[in-house]
Nucleic acid binder design. Structure first.
Lengths: 249, 249
DNA sequence: ACAAAAGTGTTATCGCTACACCCATGT
DNA sequence: ACATGGGTGTAGCGATAACACTTTTGT
């Protein structure tokens, strides 16, 4: 086998792939896209950001915000740009998950898509504010509509990944407003992980981690005893990390 | 903005992307490749499978086994095919991690690569057996050579992902021979997680999970008390999973 | 006899679960 | 007064970390 390869290389140069059958330019036929799973937390539930498609294919259908990557554009930067273009969101937590490469997943050609997820605090960021995009909606994560392409698969796989990560890393704070109560935080984690926690134990566990900064401020205008407001203490988290700290829920 | 878009669509059809500047076929210029991080466990250490490149670019350099995906080939199937072509490995544990899409990561053009990792038991599988590929080597994971392209980055990010997963899922068994001793298993996990365990406690924890089937056989020809041989009990694991069992180390 | 690794038992501590109870606010 | 969620204390159970000890093989 080795000989065959060497001969081929001498004759043809290096313009052939491993299998020595197809000219190299035949391989440069893919398009690359990015799809964002943007999650927000509102009214005790996780919400997914979807857009209504304004172009074929799947015109009019709900879909994840996503678009094609330019041939001269870094993948990660494309994810940032596209999310901003389609929803106006900027400077948000954005993380790659995995890629989807079924041959028939896109009707106009061979389009590989890379999944990203983004966690936003509905109070801190206003999707669709500066957006020229199609209509943008929040939909309930437990009651998703039929989405275009393979986007339902992307969402469900992303949620699995997210749930695992949420147990190990303090990413929940990305979904909360800057200042929040322990009750809100508990409700959020219950929504993400689909699990009830004991109030007393949850508070003890979280507070003992030392990740929260007490703002010395309180809720106002609530029809019950006002709760203390906390912030996520990023500096404390980073320095704990160096000492081998492990967030775990 | 909306008007501009609608006008453009009427005039030009749907052949433009979101930004309405570039004809759609300009986007189909990417190539797609797959790179495999193949790990084995041998002599108390994790080893990485690398090949010596037989073609430009980076001819002669060490690299991960990987190749271009055909335009009519599903991504996941390509990963299986390429791993088999380059190393002879078949029917092994293979899982996608993430993708790498820097513009300049590949000298011959815009090549997006998708990372996979594979765990193999050196005793059960023979890399390079039926392989026509370039030279294949095992290298120590703690002492990696300079690899081609961005492969060092891919390896280190993959190892991070693997370590997290190894704590949560019983993937370690993929690296062990069919029958193994608890001592071997402990040494493996110590190698993956870079952490020492107490022998007595490790055994108690593992055995209490009920994932191991006692083979009733023993080691032979060892210069110390022979150890009992165990197998991973996949059926037991699956049925435990359904009852909400969670592997955790 | 000794080295080397298998394999077991005990104890003391820490963490966590479950649950009960009190507190402050708006209506 | 009451509903609602905030906030705290504790008793008991269970897991496990630390360590010491016994066993079985080859040389």
């Amino acid at each position: 086998m080795k000989e065959k390869k060497e001969v081929l290389e001498e004759v043809i140069g290096h313009q052939f792939s491993a299998y020595y059958k197809i000219p190299i330019d035949k391989f440069f036929q893919f398009a690359l896209s990015v799809d964002g799973v943007v999650l927000g937390y509102h009214e005790k539930g996780l919400k997914l950001l979807v857009i209504e498609r304004g172009t074929e294919p799947h015109l009019g259908k709900m879909a994840l915000p996503g678009d094609l990557v330019y041939p001269n554009e870094d993948l990660d930067l494309a994810a940032v740009r596209i999310l901003k273009d389609l929803t106006g969101l900027d400077n948000v937590y954005l993380k790659q998950t995995k890629s989807y490469g079924q041959v028939d997943r896109h009707p106009i050609g061979r389009v590989i898509t890379v999944g990203y997820y983004s966690l936003i605090s509905v109070d801190r960021y206003q999707p669709l504010a500066s957006s020229w995009a199609d209509n943008v909606f929040w939909v309930d994560i437990d009651n998703l509509p039929d989405l275009a392409f393979d986007h339902n698969v992307i969402v469900s796989e992303t949620l699995e990944i997210l749930r695992e990560r949420a147990r190990q890393q303090p990413i929940g704070f990305e979904l909360l407003p800057k200042e929040f109560t322990l009750g809100e935080m508990q409700a959020l984690y219950e929504a993400i992980l689909n699990e009830k926690f004991d109030k007393a134990n949850f508070r003890k566990r979280i507070l003992s981690m030392g990740l929260l900064k007490d703002t010395q401020r309180m809720q106002t205008d609530v029809p019950h005893r006002p709760a203390r407001l906390y912030m996520f203490d990023k500096d404390a988290y980073e320095s704990l990390l160096k000492k081998g700290f492990n967030f775990e829920l």
